[in-house]
Design a protein around this nucleic acid. Structure first.
Lengths: 156, 156
DNA sequence: GTGGAATACTTGACTAAGCAGAGATTGTAT
DNA sequence: ATACAATCTCTGCTTAGTCAAGTATTCCAC
C-alpha cells in the first residue's frame, strides 16, 4: 500500500464520527461522575444501576438481566452488586421458581439515595447534555443511538 | 416528595436519552474491542491512541496532549504509553525545547499494525455503525456529538 | 536573577471490570 | 429416568485506569 493509501485509510470519516461518539461519552461520563462522587459519594455506574432498577417493574431484576442492560460480564455484575449491597442500596433475593437466579432488589435506602442523586444529576444533564441538543435535533439523535444500541444487542 | 413524584423524577427523558448514548457506546466498543483483540491482538484503546497519532502532523504528540484527547488522567496516559512502547508501537522522544515534555511518536511498526487493524475496524464500523446511520441523519448526529464533546472540553 | 506558581510526567496504592473456569441448577432429547 | 447441554452466578487472576503525591522543569512577577 502506498503512503497516500494509508493516509486515506486513516482519514476515513467513519473513524472520525465514531471517535466523536467515544469522546463525547467519555467527557460527559467524567463530568457526571465527578459531580455524583462529590455530592453523593456515588459513581456514575452506581447511579445507572440504581435508576435501571427503579425503572423496572417491582424495582428488581436478575443478575444477568442487570449485566445485560449495563453491558457488563456476569463477573462484573457480581462485583457491582456486591458494592451496591455493601452500601445498602440493594438486596439479593432468591428467585422462588429458579434456584440459579438471584433478584437484585432496590432497597428503600437505595431509592432515597437515588432520588437525592437524581436532583443533582438532572441539573448536570441539563447543563452539559440536554441544553446542547436542539428540540428538532432530538428525534434523529435519539433514533440513531437506539438503532446503534439495538444493532449491537442483536448479534450477541 | 410523593411517590408519584419520585416516579416522575426517575422517568425524565434526559436520563433516558443519555442512557442510550452510554449503552450504544458500550455495546459498540465491546464489539469492536473483541474484533481487534481476536484479529490483531490490540485493544480498542490501543487502536484509538495509534490512529490519533497517525492523524497528527509529524505522527507525534506530547503525553499530555494524548491524555487530553483520549480523556485520560496523566497517570493513565503514562501507563497507556508504557504498553504502546512495550509493544513497539511508539517511542518516547525528548522534546528539545522543553525538557519536561515527552513526545509520543508512532513507529513504523505501529503504523503498519495500525494499517492492518484499520482494514478490520472499517469493516466493523461499516457493519455495526455506519450502516445504521442514514446519510441525511449524519450531519445532525455528528454536530450534536461534536457540540457535546466541546461543551465538556470547555469547562475543564 | 530569584522565588514562587504553574506545568509535565511518573509512581504507589487502590478500584473496577474482564476472562476463563467452576459449581449449581434447569431444560431437553431419548 | 438419565444423560447431556445450556443457563446462572461466583471466584481467582490479570489488566486498565484513577487519585494523590512526588520530582523535574519552566514561566512569571518583582
Amino acid at each position: 500500500m502506498t503512503d497516500s493509501g494509508v493516509e486515506q485509510l486513516f482519514a476515513d470519516d467513519r473513524i472520525t464520527t465514531f471517535g466523536l461518539l467515544v469522546e463525547a461519552h467519555r467527557r460527559l461520563q467524567r463530568t457526571f461522575d465527578k459531580s455524583l462522587r462529590d455530592h453523593h459519594d456515588m459513581t456514575g455506574v452506581t447511579y445507572e444501576a440504581l435508576i435501571r432498577l427503579a425503572r423496572t417493574e417491582g424495582r428488581q431484576m436478575s443478575m444477568s438481566e442487570l449485566a445485560d442492560q449495563m453491558v457488563l460480564t456476569s463477573g462484573g455484575a457480581t462485583r457491582l452488586v456486591d458494592r451496591l449491597a455493601e452500601a445498602g442500596f440493594v438486596e439479593r433475593l432468591h428467585c422462588p421458581t429458579d434456584r440459579r437466579v438471584l433478584w437484585v432488589h432496590l432497597s428503600e435506602h437505595g431509592e432515597s439515595a437515588l432520588a437525592a442523586a437524581t436532583e443533582t444529576h438532572l441539573n448536570d444533564l441539563q447543563e452539559h447534555f440536554a441544553s446542547e441538543i436542539d428540540p428538532d435535533e432530538l428525534p434523529v439523535f435519539t433514533e440513531v443511538l437506539d438503532r446503534l444500541r439495538r444493532g449491537c444487542t442483536a448479534q450477541r
